[in-house]
């Protein structure tokens, strides 16, 4: 495969990862009383599977599509207004997190401990952006912003980090091209 073909393949992968991220806002797995929304799991996987550079590009494309007014954000909305809105900090946090997770996990070359460390750091970055902007946009106090914008989601995040490790292990061979699935009918 020559350089331009590899570049094209990476570009298509990053675009589809961005589409998956957008879809993640709509897909929830109902477990117990609270459904688990998959968006931040997909952000972590973008970093783990595509690496720092392309992970960042993929999330940036997702944000760009939203900023341009296409309905890719949660609730079927889009537009720059969403960045200024109360949840805008999380969106910017997603980009920083994908880059950081990709960067750290690339240096670990697939070691589980490094991947987990990368995802914990990424989650912290998302909340650092998200909670501080939530505080500015709605004028809540820091303790209230933490209670509303971070504490309820921590258990779900721990679960997603635990799930992301085996998922990344199963999918990485496919990304490198060393393993392909035989396509059956359908």
């Amino acid at each position: 495969m020559d350089a331009s073909a590899r570049q094209l393949k990476r570009m298509v992968y990053a675009s589809l990862m961005a589409a998956l991220t957008a879809a993640g806002a709509y897909i929830a797995i109902p477990i117990g009383p609270v459904p688990i929304v998959l968006q931040n799991l997909f952000i972590m996987l973008a970093g783990l599977l595509l690496g720092g550079r392309w992970g960042l590009i993929s999330v940036a494309v997702y944000l760009l599509a939203g900023a341009a007014g296409l309905p890719v954000f949660a609730g079927g909305t889009g537009g720059v207004g969403k960045f200024v809105g109360p949840t805008g900090g999380y969106l910017l946090g997603f980009a920083a997190a994908a880059y950081l997770i990709g960067l750290i996990s690339e240096s670990g070359r697939g070691r589980v401990a490094i991947d987990v460390l990368a995802m914990v750091a990424g989650t912290l970055i998302i909340y650092a952006f998200g909670v501080s902007w939530l505080k500015v946009a709605t004028g809540m106090s820091f303790s209230k912003a933490f209670a509303v914008g971070m504490l309820p989601f921590l258990i779900g995040d721990a679960l997603k980090i635990a799930a992301a490790v085996p998922i990344a292990k199963a999918l990485r061979p496919m990304m490198d091209g060393t393993f392909t699935v035989v396509r059956t009918a359908g």
Binding site: L45, I167, A170, M175
Partner: peptide
């Protein structure tokens, strides 16, 4: 989470 995400990603990357 695993049983849902792995087949979804496989299908999406195949179409990629």
């Amino acid at each position: 989470l695993m049983k849902f995400t792995i087949p979804l990603f496989r299908r999406v990357f195949l179409s990629a």
